[in-house]
Simulated assay, not measured.
Amino acid sequence: MTQTIFLADEAATLAFGESWSRCLQPPMVVYLNGDLGTGKTTFTRGVLRGLGHTGAVKSPTYAIVESYRLPEYELNHFDLYRFAYPEEWEDAGLDDLFSGSSVNVIEWSVQGGEYVPAPDLILNFSAQDGGRVCNISAQSAQGQRSLDLWQN
């Protein structure tokens, strides 16, 4: 099942992320797809704000991953945009960050090829009518539970 939502601006994208903050439960992998500037990091910032994180949330474009230890679980925010080849996933030892107690949000997952774990949810962001559209699709039973929880 796919759900679509229109996000008029950055504030709407932050609120959208916050609305997902209680719907993501470990272990979980979430792919955030979309062109540069379509709201992937803003969505993640909203999720983290919804979970009570008050510190900075920056794009992990250069660091590859930013990890946030939260009371509920650890959220790892990956950005694979700068990967030159998929094997960089393995070279960086990123599999070590995946555990039964983490939610892993991955931007530009395609850059990691077959090394990136399969998603539970895929959120596809695109620019439209001066805002953004996000298409959400569940890829597993865990993803479907999260999508159902978010819709209700």
Results as ranks from 00 to 15, higher is better:
residue 142 Q to F: 05
residue 120 D to K: 05
residue 63 A to W: 00
residue 19 S to T: 02
residue 118 A to M: 08
residue 127 A to F: 09
residue 66 E to N: 15
residue 96 D to A: 15
residue 85 Y to E: 15
residue 52 G to F: 04
residue 138 A to P: 08
residue 37 G to N: 06
residue 70 L to K: 03
residue 100 G to W: 01
residue 86 P to I: 11
residue 88 E to T: 09
residue 80 L to P: 07
residue 110 V to H: 11
residue 72 E to T: 13
residue 31 Y to C: 05
residue 48 L to E: 04
residue 128 Q to P: 00
residue 19 S to A: 15
residue 145 R to P: 00
residue 78 F to E: 02
residue 148 D to N: 14
residue 35 D to L: 12
residue 110 V to T: 14
residue 72 E to H: 11
residue 9 D to R: 11
residue 121 L to V: 04
residue 76 N to Q: 03
residue 119 P to G: 06
residue 101 S to M: 02
residue 112 G to E: 00
residue 85 Y to Q: 14
residue 66 E to L: 09
residue 69 R to D: 13
residue 145 R to V: 05
residue 98 F to N: 01
residue 20 W to L: 11
residue 1 M to V: 11
residue 105 V to F: 01
residue 101 S to Q: 12
residue 109 S to N: 08
residue 68 Y to G: 10
residue 40 K to T: 08
residue 37 G to P: 09
residue 122 I to L: 06
residue 27 P to L: 01
residue 9 D to N: 15
residue 105 V to I: 15
residue 67 S to V: 07
residue 6 F to P: 04
residue 144 Q to M: 15
residue 71 P to Y: 02
residue 32 L to K: 09
residue 141 A to N: 11
residue 84 A to E: 15
residue 14 L to S: 06
residue 59 S to T: 12
residue 58 K to N: 14
residue 58 K to A: 14
residue 29 V to Y: 01
residue 11 A to H: 09
residue 1 M to K: 10
residue 109 S to I: 02
residue 9 D to M: 05
residue 84 A to L: 11
residue 125 F to V: 01
residue 26 P to H: 06
residue 59 S to C: 12
residue 41 T to Q: 01
residue 143 G to L: 08
residue 91 D to K: 14
residue 82 R to W: 05
residue 26 P to S: 09
residue 73 Y to A: 15
residue 46 G to W: 00
residue 110 V to W: 03
residue 86 P to V: 08
residue 76 N to Y: 02
residue 23 C to T: 11
residue 53 H to I: 01
residue 110 V to Q: 14
residue 126 S to K: 14
